[in-house]
């Protein structure tokens, strides 16, 4: 999909903060010099093109009382699909990526208590029979800023 300058500025604005107002898309339109209808139309297009993942609230999980860990598993190549299916079935797992390492499957577990995090971990070990597992809970957060600069990219893929 071709992104024009207005799309890029729109993506910059909405990554930062949606106005907490009665007509947020009209307010964004004022900033961009376009109407509310055009803002909505562009957002629908960007959503259909799968450039926008979600528009909504992004929470600090710890402040909601949740706790979690980053896990890594050594999965044999021919078992990746099957093991991923076991892991991905847990609602406590929101991210799961294959990575270039002996520990090749990296996923997060997030739950309301430490005991639930451990239960998920133990169940995954038992169900997959894989016990080469790392569990690396965060001890300190230095940065979380999931905002991407879209201005220097010629075209979205």
């Amino acid at each position: 999909m071709q992104l024009d300058n207005t799309d890029r500025r729109l993506l910059e604005i909405i990554q930062r903060q949606i106005p907490l107002s009665s007509r947020p898309f009209a307010d964004i339109g004022v900033e961009l010099g376009i109407g509310e209808g055009e803002v909505l139309e562009r957002l629908r297009r960007l959503q259909e093109a799968k450039i926008i993942r979600r528009i909504g609230g992004f929470f600090d999980s710890r402040k909601l009382g949740y706790t979690g860990t980053l896990c890594a598993l050594q999965v044999p190549r021919d078992r990746i699909e099957e093991v991923a299916a076991v892991i991905n079935a847990y609602s406590e797992v929101s991210h799961n990526y294959l990575r270039t390492h002996e520990y090749n499957m990296w996923f997060t577990i997030l739950a309301p208590s430490q005991s639930e995090v451990e239960r998920v971990m133990e169940e995954i070990k038992a169900r997959t029979g894989i016990d080469s597992v790392l569990s690396l809970p965060a001890e300190r957060l230095f940065k979380i800023r999931v905002k991407f600069n879209v201005s220097e990219v010629p075209d979205a893929e």
Partner: peptide
């Protein structure tokens, strides 16, 4: 929602992009 932002429960209310689709390969 304002109150959630002030208390830091919400980091932000906005959009998340699929970074692979905005040129981050």
């Amino acid at each position: 929602v304002e109150n959630f932002l002030e208390r830091g429960l919400l980091r932000r209310f906005g959009a998340a992009l699929r970074h692979q689709r905005v040129g981050y390969g």
